Amino acid sequence: MLYSPEERLRRDESPWTVVQGILAPLQFLIFLVSLALVFRYFSTGAGALAADISIIAKTLALYAIMVTGSIWEKQVFGKWLFARPFFWEDVFSMVVIALHTAYLVMLAGGIGTLDQRLFVALAAYATYVVNAGQFLLKLRAARLEMPARTAVAG
């Protein structure tokens, strides 16, 4: 069971559930645009600044969803991070954050070449896709769990 009845109630009543529901697709949209800009740079050599700006935007969206997500976890499960139902998603999120942050450090510190920095961003994006998949599977499990529990109760 993903949520206890009390956790489900707290989840459904939390305003942070709505915030997560808005930020997650917004972050994905930013990711798609940014990925296209990074691929454009690698295929044409043009648009490096646009790619950098888009990666910064993606990273800021990631930070926003992680901060609000930890607030959500605290409200629903009583823990800021690594609550039982989302433990492995949160662990993998740390890898995602580390790679996005490494990109920012490289950019701000002038570390490495543009191509190296963009490859770090692509690695961050690959981990983000895996992590987003983890969360989508949890969302699906939560949706499947509710009708099954209602059917048993009724």
Rank of each mutant, 00 (worst) to 15 (best):
G45P: 10
R84Y: 01
V76I: 02
R84F: 01
L122E: 13
F42D: 05
A153G: 01
A24M: 14
T44A: 09
E6Q: 13
V33I: 14
A132E: 10
G21L: 06
W80N: 09
T150K: 14
K74V: 01
I65V: 13
G47H: 00
L37Y: 07
F87K: 09
G110R: 11
V95W: 07
E6S: 15
F42Y: 04
S43Y: 13
V19W: 13
G21R: 14
F31T: 08
T17L: 14
G45F: 11
Y63L: 15
A61G: 15
E13M: 15
F86Q: 08
G69R: 09
A123I: 06
M106V: 00
D52M: 07
M1E: 13
M94D: 01
L49I: 05
E6G: 10
I111F: 04
I65H: 11
K138W: 05
V120P: 03
I97C: 02
L23M: 09
Y41G: 10
L104Y: 04
L137S: 11
I97M: 10
F87I: 08
L107I: 08
P15Q: 11
Y63C: 12
S43K: 13
L144S: 11
A61K: 03
Q75A: 14
M66V: 15
E7N: 01
I53P: 02
I53H: 06
I71N: 09
A61M: 13
T127A: 15
G78W: 12
L29Q: 01
L26N: 04
E89S: 10
A102I: 09
P25K: 06
V19P: 11
Y128R: 03
I22P: 08
W80I: 04
R143L: 14
E145T: 10
